[in-house]
Amino acid sequence: MANTTKIEVRVNGVGRTAEVQPRLLLVHYLRDVLGLTGTHIGCETSLCGACTVMVDGAAVKSCTLLAVQVDGCEVQTIESLATDDGLHPIQEAFWDCHGLQCGFCTPGMIMATRQLLQENPSPSEEEIRHGLEGNICRCTGYKHIVDAVQQAAEQMKAGT
């Protein structure tokens, strides 16, 4: 059996420990070890963004990280966004604006949006389109996604 390494990671606010093969990809750790299947796999080549999660507050592609690389880190997945009070404003906005169809790219798109609005709370349409360059949606044609990001930006500004 391949060697393993012990990792300790806070995932969605909960401390987790596991013995993992060093080659285990973060996305597989989240999905297959922790059962957090909202993070999806779409491309193998770090291009589609479906696997986007946040590590220590920064959006990353979890297919291009080893689980061992995030030992000691804080990881947030799509499952962390909604609370008992309801959906996160970005989730609400994607729903309101029909920013999704099949929904497969959506968790990654929402996590990328979260990063975008963290860095730029009032993005222009151009900045939104540029800021989502790491994510592919094959269904929507992006217009409704842009609408959703704009709405989320307004909501989040109003909420703070």
């Binding site: 299947t37 909202g38 999806h40 966004l81 729903w95 029909h98 999704l100 929904g103 959506t106």
Partner: peptide
């Protein structure tokens, strides 16, 4: 009418084939 599919999808709580446990 807002889509009734979406709450599960925007939360990553839906089940595509690879998500079945």
């Amino acid at each position: 009418v807002k889509r009734r599919e979406d709450p599960r999808l925007v939360q990553g709580l839906s089940h595509y084939v690879d998500d079945l446990r």
